[in-house]
Design a protein around this nucleic acid. Sequence first.
DNA 1: CATTTAGTTCAATAATTTTTGAACAAATAA
DNA 2: TTATTTGTTCAAAAATTATTGAACTAAATG
Lengths: 164, 164
Amino acid sequence: MDNEKLNYIEESGLAFEIFGMTRMAGRIFGYLIVSDKEAVSFDDIREALDASKGSISGTTKQLLGVGFIEPVSLPGDRKTYYRISKSNIGAILKGRTALFLKFSALLEKGVDLKINKDDDITAWLHEMAAFYRWLAARIEHLLNSWEEEKEVFMKYENKDHGKK
Amino acid sequence: MDNEKLNYIEESGLAFEIFGMTRMAGRIFGYLIVSDKEAVSFDDIREALDASKGSISGTTKQLLGVGFIEPVSLPGDRKTYYRISKSNIGAILKGRTALFLKFSALLEKGVDLKINKDDDITAWLHEMAAFYRWLAARIEHLLNSWEEEKEVFMKYENKDHGKK
DNA sequence: CATTTAGTTCAATAATTTTTGAACAAATAA
DNA sequence: TTATTTGTTCAAAAATTATTGAACTAAATG
């Protein structure tokens, strides 16, 4: 494979680490993109990335779990192929909003344990907890409006291209 | 300290690990909440959490960096105290939206490296990249509207309490 | 039924991250 | 100036997480 593509795969690996996933997950995701194939097999991935079967097995499951990739099966072929998943565009976000709710609950639980609930901090903690609940609700709502807004947004971005 | 509070501090530590920070950061944050004090000193934290000075020093900096806590200084006292920060409610989110833009850029870069740009996957990758740019912009916008909306939201939540 | 293919599982290893603890620096106090 | 307080820095240790590789299972083929 082309050197630029190999570099991209590693870059994707490092980026995924920042996003909180594993380097190998980013490598596989990047490879699926630049492979220029409809779908790639388990063994294609293993060879391209020079990694162990165990690692590919575990990481494809991880990527399947969060909806980044999807399996493809073909008649008369017992292999499983993988490609970038076209569903679940907001899947990762759903997970994030769950974390916001968890943080909100953590804050409220902390306030419950305070003896003095008349101070500034208590009021602030309640507000911060409400903020994260509000945010989770608003983001869930946002996700639903992408389908309606995407056409206009993408056209607008394009029209704007190159302007200051 | 009360056993329930100690448990809460550990719970907060585990939660912060899920949020992508360190366990110690969560412990300090949790301790600041349940301490029921206006502000706590470096040494209060160290004793309460039975951790090393190095760990407290590094972690308070981490928490200061993301705006979760803020320093308090008092005249005639050379210690630095810390409390939950009341500013920067959306600070953590700003960092997240930066990640969305990074992911969007990663996707576009991947498409650039493809030879065949007429396939389904390419169109999908463009759409996904646009989605994350759109989302980042919308979330930035959301953060600005919390101040306006919070009063109504908190009143509404309260009114709704206990209803199905 | 025996063999091959396709992938999973899991204990061991490698790599990374977190925490400690001791030495250090800066600032105040004596 | 010397001693004490308050915290920082950083190398080493501990803990955690990712990856390998070998043994295994399940399904399909001959």
